[in-house]
Design a protein around this nucleic acid. Structure first.
Lengths: 232, 232
DNA sequence: GATTCTATCTCGCTG
DNA sequence: CAGCGAGGTAGAATC
């Protein structure tokens, strides 16, 4: 399709009909909002979703080179004889403008999708695994609560060990770095502060493995590590 | 069917030609790798990029419901009479399988895109801003190094204050939570340990704003905060 | 390759 | 609405 006017009408009609619209062609892109960006001419795929999402994809990469999140208002204009897709949102105020020097194709698809994605191997699965078999953490460990609130946030699993000490368990589904140790340390520190008596509070990081620096941090903070993979 | 066979050939031809290929139709999706997932039938857009990226998009959301990162091998098969796109990668081993019960359209696009995206308003811009006008942090602040290495990682900006104390500056381009305070604290702690003499080490978080919990953490750790927006 | 950190992160949940 | 943390985070820089 070489006619910008016809392209504009096709895009607008698709948007009005609540369809998923794709435009392939040579375009440049301007974004302004939380940051701002400019992108010179190139061949790209523009995807406009009925929920107000916009995606500009190049020939490379998982991530769109430019985008607009769900909830935006899209508009197809004719600006200086070019197809111009203008997308706006508020809080924060952000605008995306895609100018097509040429349009190779506009496609419209009516979509119905009622299926839910079911994922396994998540942190929630790891939590269930530990709750079903607390001895995986250590012999005598007894979980008492999940998502237990502290001043520093919610603890993944809170419980007691065989000696009656309080235990904070932080779960991670994959190999962890220093950030997870900091997270665990914040919870342990908060709980020590909150327990007025002399209760000992232990912190245990449960994950498949830790990096070297994270391991050093654990040692420094007197925290512990238990190697455990998420099930499945 | 004849349909599926033609679709398979179109997809395979596009992949062979190094083109960007899109398939719209009713499909189900299986993923197995770092985690695993199942997705029942629905109308979706499959995007196959010449760099080995695969994206499955529904009618909603910024994120693809399933995907495969760059560097994968895509293959278009005919399985039980259906178009079946099979994508594999290694390290980690991951597979994505998309089975189309029906194909509404297969589109192929030859892509050339040489333009670079230029973004502004990033953390790097904020760093330049501070280095050009160190007094934005505080009067008398003198930057001495960027990305200065410590046992806990690289410090954004390292310098000295008017009294000759060491100063660690952690930059964030937007409002920050507890994680950033933890990061700054790790750097300050590491530097205090590394400076054998009695040098005072101050930690300053530079960001547009902080959350309440982050503010409390800053106070607890004896760290400071300076409000500063990224330029532009 | 592994590690670390940024990101217009997105997303979901909770208060 | 903001805050907080998970994510198959992805991507980049560095070692």
């Amino acid at each position: 399709m070489d006619d910008a006017s016809a392209a504009r009408e096709a895009v607008e009609a698709g948007l009005d009909a609540g369809e998923l619209v794709t435009v392939f062609g040579r375009c440049r892109v301007d974004y302004d909002g939380r940051a701002s960006s400019e992108l010179g001419p190139g061949d790209r795929l523009l995807v406009l979703k009925p929920d107000g999402t916009a995606l500009v994809h190049t020939d490379e990469g998982h991530q769109p080179v430019n985008w607009q999140p769900p909830g935006c208002d899209h508009e197809a204009r004719l600006t200086d004889g070019e197809l111009h897709v203008h997308s706006v949102r508020t809080t924060p105020e952000e605008t995306l403008d895609v100018y097509f020097a040429s349009v190779a194709a506009v496609n419209r698809y009516a979509v119905t999708d009622d299926s839910e994605l079911s994922v396994s191997g998540t942190e929630a699965d790891l939590r269930e695994h530990v709750l079903e078999s607390p001895s995986l953490v250590e012999a005598g460990f007894e979980p008492r609560a999940t998502e237990r609130e502290t001043a520093a946030g919610a603890v993944d699993i809170y419980g007691v060990d065989a000696d009656g000490n309080a235990v904070v368990v932080e779960l991670k589904r994959r190999r962890v770095g220093p950030d997870a140790v900091g997270q665990l340390d914040r919870y342990v520190t908060a709980l020590r502060r909150e327990s007025h008596d002399g209760t000992t509070v232990r912190g245990i990081l449960v994950a498949p493995s830790v990096t070297e620096r994270a391991s050093e941090l654990l040692a420094e903070q007197g925290l512990e590590f238990v190697a455990l993979e998420p099930p499945e």
